[in-house]
């Protein structure tokens, strides 16, 4: 059996007013404390290379896309967000995506695509904002996904650093 021992209150405590005044003092003092709230659209969220935002396709400085449409990200994607069709090119890298769709509404930003990619072509960018007026507009096609390598450089370096920790020397 639990016996609750109630403290005998003094008169001052019983009339309750000193406690109320104390409480009022606390709330008033907090009114002038610094705010925690972030004014979101004006103050964007800070991102760094560890941020796993929406996946983006890296485009080399010579305007060629790194992706060879090998389909490993498509296979790795747990949310079935990626759809790829390839076609032949005249470049030395014979293959590139003709269609590369990521359904951003399905994407769960897990980063499996980035991990699966053998060609260092898809990276989790620091872009996090996603809003539009239709579902169709949020299925990003290849043109919406392309980003120059320079824009993704921080993430590329970070991923390389992480991979180097456990990978043995490559066979190429």
């Amino acid at each position: 059996m639990v016996v609750v021992e109630r403290k005998e209150l003094s008169f001052l405590e019983r009339i309750y007013f000193p406690a109320i005044l104390k409480g009022l003092k606390i709330t008033m003092s907090k009114m002038f404390a610094p705010r925690f709230t972030r004014q979101y659209p004006e103050e964007p969220l800070p991102t760094n290379e560890v941020t796993r935002g929406q996946p983006r396709l890296a485009v080399n400085p010579d305007d060629t896309i790194r992706c060879v449409s090998c389909g490993l990200c498509e296979a790795a994607c747990p949310a079935y967000a990626i759809t790829i069709d390839g076609h032949e090119t005249e470049r030395f890298i014979e293959r590139e995506p003709e269609r590369f769709d990521i359904d951003m509404l399905r994407c769960i930003l897990c980063g499996f695509c980035e991990e699966a990619c053998p060609k260092d072509a898809i990276y989790m960018s620091n872009e996090l904002e996603l809003a539009d007026f239709s579902r169709a507009a949020l299925v990003y096609d290849i043109e919406k996904l392309k980003r120059p390598v320079s824009a993704l450089q921080d993430r590329i370096d970070y991923v390389k650093k992480i991979n180097d920790r456990w990978q043995t020397s490559s066979s190429t």
Partner: peptide
Amino acid sequence: FRFKARVWN
């Protein structure tokens, strides 16, 4: 068929 589809798909 060249580069049109991945066989596992």
